[in-house]
């Protein structure tokens, strides 16, 4: 199978990452548009790649880690562009583009073959609903964490009175806090839906909604962590630095649940090393 679009997208994302990195190091506004256009081109190629995978497999291209990571990266970039529309700060790209690149590189270490026939579990209509909701939630958390990192940096610069170029490149604290304020509850909402649809899917194929599989357990832990954060944020009025730290910590947990659990703990969400296919059952 041809991965030409995937490869083009990856190269463009890496190019965008480098352009954004140069932009950061030199603080030269002139470099930012280059990164942006590379990222846009990468996103276009990436969209074609996903479309191509969908047509090729004749189904939602979400069955293996290669595709899931690819869609994850695609969503991170997509939300980044949406966010860029609201917060016109090129510095966001210097974090989104590398994250997308890393996700795709990690995906590329897995086999992109789709073993035919697909196990029946994966032929369910729950697959796209569950996976897309879960990944969308993760992408939101990723960008919220990026916003958190930028908040911590900007806050440190302002507190220590280092008002230089870097300070000017970063968005205002208020804007960054707004990303957090909207990102946490929205991501939490998607995560909740992801878990519920997962349970419904499990219920429809295995007859049991919840089986304490490691991924499920960690998802629940993540869910509780975010529930606590949203509570702190909305009810106790936590904001600023504390909220930013929570977002970063939360995303660490998300990434562990998403990548670490499958790799370390196994379970029915885990992928078989040889084929990269989901294990068929419990």
């Amino acid at each position: 199978m041809d991965l030409v679009f995937f490869k083009i997208a990856l190269v463009l994302y890496l190019g965008a990452s480098i352009a954004y990195l140069i932009f950061l190091l030199l603080s030269s506004e002139g470099r930012a548009p280059l990164g942006f256009w590379l990222a846009i081109a990468g996103f276009a190629a990436h969209s074609l790649s996903i479309l191509h995978r969908a047509i090729f497999s004749g189904y939602w291209p979400l069955a293996g880690p290669f595709d899931v990571l690819s869609v994850f990266a695609w969503m991170v970039m997509g939300i980044f562009f949406l966010l860029l529309y609201k917060v016109p700060s090129p510095i966001l790209g210097s974090m989104a583009a590398p994250i997308a690149s890393v996700l795709m590189l990690y995906g590329a270490t897995w086999s992109y073959q789709i073993r035919e026939p697909l196990v029946p579990v994966l032929k369910s209509f729950w697959l796209p609903i569950h996976v897309i909701l879960a990944i969308a939630g993760n992408s939101i958390f990723a960008l919220t964490a990026i916003g958190g990192c930028m908040y911590m940096l900007q806050e440190k610069l302002i507190k220590s009175k280092r008002i230089g170029r870097f300070h000017r490149l970063l968005p205002s604290l208020e804007t960054l806090d707004k990303i957090n304020r909207h990102g946490l509850p929205f991501g939490f909402f998607l995560l909740t839906l992801g878990i519920i649809t997962g349970a419904l899917w499990a219920g429809s194929v295995w007859g049991s909604y919840w089986s304490w599989d490691p991924k499920e357990t960690w998802s629940l832990i993540t869910w509780f962590a975010y529930a606590a954060m949203v509570h702190q944020r909305v009810v106790l009025g936590w904001r600023g630095k504390k909220a930013a730290m929570l977002a970063i910590f939360g995303f660490g947990l998300v990434m562990f649940t998403f990548v670490g659990v499958s790799a370390l703990l196994g379970g029915h969400h885990a992928f078989e090393p040889q084929t990269g296919m989901m294990k068929p059952g419990m």
Binding site: Q154, L173, E174
Partner: peptide
């Protein structure tokens, strides 16, 4: 002017 700019970086609009 610097104070106004700084205020905007902290408080937004």
């Amino acid at each position: 002017y610097a104070a106004v700019k700084l205020a905007k970086k902290i408080l937004g609009d």
